[in-house]
Design a protein around this nucleic acid. Sequence first.
DNA 1: TCAAAAGTGTTGACTTTACACCCATGA
DNA 2: TCATGGGTGTAAAGTCAACACTTTTGA
Lengths: 245, 245
Amino acid sequence: MDNNLKLKTAEIEKISHLEYFNIAISVDCVIFCYNEKSLQVLLIKSDLEEYSGLYSLLGDLVKPDEDLDSAPYRVLKQRTGMDDVYLEQVHTFGSIGRHVSGRVITTAYYSLIDIKHHKLKLDENELHWHPVKNIKKLAFDHKIILDTCLQRLREQVMEFPIAFNLLPEKFSLRQLQELYEAILGIELDRRNFRKKIALKGWLHDLDEMETDVSHRPGKLYSLDPVHKKRKVIKKSKQPLVTILT
Amino acid sequence: MDNNLKLKTAEIEKISHLEYFNIAISVDCVIFCYNEKSLQVLLIKSDLEEYSGLYSLLGDLVKPDEDLDSAPYRVLKQRTGMDDVYLEQVHTFGSIGRHVSGRVITTAYYSLIDIKHHKLKLDENELHWHPVKNIKKLAFDHKIILDTCLQRLREQVMEFPIAFNLLPEKFSLRQLQELYEAILGIELDRRNFRKKIALKGWLHDLDEMETDVSHRPGKLYSLDPVHKKRKVIKKSKQPLVTILT
DNA sequence: TCAAAAGTGTTGACTTTACACCCATGA
DNA sequence: TCATGGGTGTAAAGTCAACACTTTTGA
């Protein structure tokens, strides 16, 4: 007991010394899924006294021997059992006071996963899916991080074929449209949506129909294999040339 | 189990994280200027043996008591004597092997400055402006950082009134067009460019004319005061609504 | 036969592109 | 008077937004 206390004090001394010279770096993951027609995000009960009762994003400190971009994959693998997920770096947050337990700079990523594929045991881990719409407050600056990632997702989703990561392998155009509506937070015209998606050439017609629906079944599609890359490769100039003259 | 026991305090959490406080974090600045009809970037001779002969971006370690976003302002102030510059965070680079002298994760910013305003003493500091077009190789991963920042600049420049930071207070439409051509790396149609810019409503007509030109002088403009904000405030949904239906 | 969603085209408004001529100035 | 760039308009093409009816299926 005595020893423990002494050690702790020494450690804390050391920490406050370190604190002055060192900065920790973490990653935080905004893990999106699409379930019951709503865009949801995976949160964990904060284990810090200071934020008791609040939820926070999944994150971890970056290990000295791992790439920054590998850290969120590790976090996802640990928490959901999934690898081969879509991940995108969004922004790095580094205000002095953003973390209660010291100076931590965090790089935010968002991830898109198909809820059917993950293997999390929600109750055990105090992990829960929360509809993005309902989230008012999170621990740390995680609400701002969430908002930033959502905004980026909205920007990307029309330009690149990434939303499909949130859907099962086979899906109908209606499902796809509802997904887009959930992400963008707006309603879309069905005819215009179908035209626009057809124009993108992202879809592969499976020649199958929905089953188990109590109405006329729709056709099923999958993401065209050509567009199945994990990492977005940005067209460098193409879109810019068309912007102006 | 007692609730208090389950919750970690911030102090305790620090201890468990001690081992991780050994990654350094830096910022690197891609400082753009516009001179002699070309987009240029401020580079410094690398003082590392490993990169002898190569140039690198301006950067520095983030101090424990400064916000991440403040660090690039400090670097710019130190190097150019300018504050009140346009700065935008772009991406964070954190591969294990990216820095020869240890584990350094770096957040990249780009900055737009009017070359006429800076106070650098180029020769003393081994600081030099380099046309972006000519840059083939830089120290560390700085070429990739430069490319990433240039791409982001190209994406932003049509959407937000930021290019004006590269021009003097008063400028002609020709100057502005040449600047855009330098940034985008493409030629633009004069009439369409003028229409497009007029439509944006970014310009304030100064009712003055160019002087010292050996041809018909053009009108001078300045950035409309309404748009003179340092930080870009993103319209959240406006552009997205128009994307689809 | 009803309810629910699938599937499909057109029109008008707007935006974008391509393109050519006269004008003002200084050399 | 020439060279240089300033300044401007229009027509055709393409894109976007709004909008309604018929079809298929299961209940």
